[in-house]
């Protein structure tokens, strides 16, 4: 079904287990291949280990068993090529928008002057030109999330990991950010792994949905969303969209009974 992806996946999780110190088995025999340029959603009920899987991919924590490989990378390590967006904007409140976005480059010892152009470019991409000097508390929730996305994109990552980034936003803002994110994804060459518990959001955004079951967390269904891009607000009301939503909901229902 996904020949191109399985041929040369960007990242491959094979038989991954994750056992936390408190005895919780968050993941059990999780398998997932993510191909280059894919937009994959990890969809599942809360507590199914989707965030844990994302953190393992990011290198924040070690799998208890199994492997996470980067087949397309020489040496197998891809850490610096990853951008991560948390559920909360997770900005430094004492730093301006510029300094927040500059952070990943600063940590990689890029001089401030040299980074200025890239920061400006990425802020323009997320629609925040002119807000360089603002502090996070002066921004709305949606704008903070845009800063967070800009920060993840400033290093030009090949893989963008997003952990329910829009869950705390109101629907209007969420739809807008959904569209902007799709636009960015389509114009760039990155791969996205997007964690969500919303069927509608995952169908709208992804070209593939990995449905996860809880206790222990694992992938139970791998669905392709074949609807062509660009997708816009018209797509949200289309029959195709509704059919996919129904299909994914059914699959999620089965996962929750499993």
């Amino acid at each position: 079904m996904l020949q191109d992806a399985t041929a040369r996946p960007l990242v491959r999780l094979s038989h991954v287990d994750k056992l936390f110190g408190n005895g919780t088995l968050a993941l059990k025999d999780m398998n997932l291949d993510v191909g280059e340029h894919e937009f994959v959603s990890l969809l599942g009920p809360s507590g199914c280990g989707k965030s844990t899987a994302l953190r393992l991919v990011a290198g924040l924590g070690e799998a208890t068993a199994g492997t996470i490989e980067w087949p397309s990378r020489a040496g197998g390590k891809g850490l610096r090529d990853i951008g991560f967006v948390f559920q909360e904007p997770t900005l430094m409140p004492w730093a301006t928008v510029f300094d927040n976005v500059y952070l990943p480059l600063r940590l990689q010892l890029v001089a401030r002057g040299k980074a200025a152009d890239e920061v400006a470019a990425v802020l323009a991409k997320v629609g925040l030109t002119g807000f360089e000097g603002a502090y996070p508390r002066e921004l709305s929730g949606g704008m903070k999330m845009r800063v967070s996305i800009a920060r993840a994109l400033v290093t030009k990552p090949r893989l963008l990991l997003m952990d329910e980034p829009f869950a705390a936003l109101d629907e209007i803002t969420r739809f807008k950010l959904n569209n902007d994110l799709l636009e960015l994804w389509r114009s760039q060459s990155w791969t996205v792994i997007f964690v969500t518990h919303s069927v509608y959001e995952s169908v709208y955004l992804s070209n593939r949905i990995a449905v996860m079951a809880a206790r222990p967390g694992r992938v139970v269904a791998d669905l392709r969303i074949g609807a062509p891009y660009p997708r816009d607000d018209e797509f949200r009301t289309s029959t195709v969209y509704n059919d996919y939503c129904r299909q994914v909901s059914r699959s999620l229902g089965e996962a929750m009974r499993a």
Partner: peptide, 28 residues
């Protein structure tokens, strides 16, 4: 902030960078 610590980790920040750019401003 724990997520910020994770973020610094993700970008391979050194102990000194975490102190300088994250822990000290948080402690202010």
């Amino acid at each position: 902030d724990h997520n910020l610590i994770n973020l610094f980790q993700l970008y391979g920040a050194t102990r000194w960078q975490v102190l300088r750019y994250l822990r000290i401003p948080s402690a202010m």
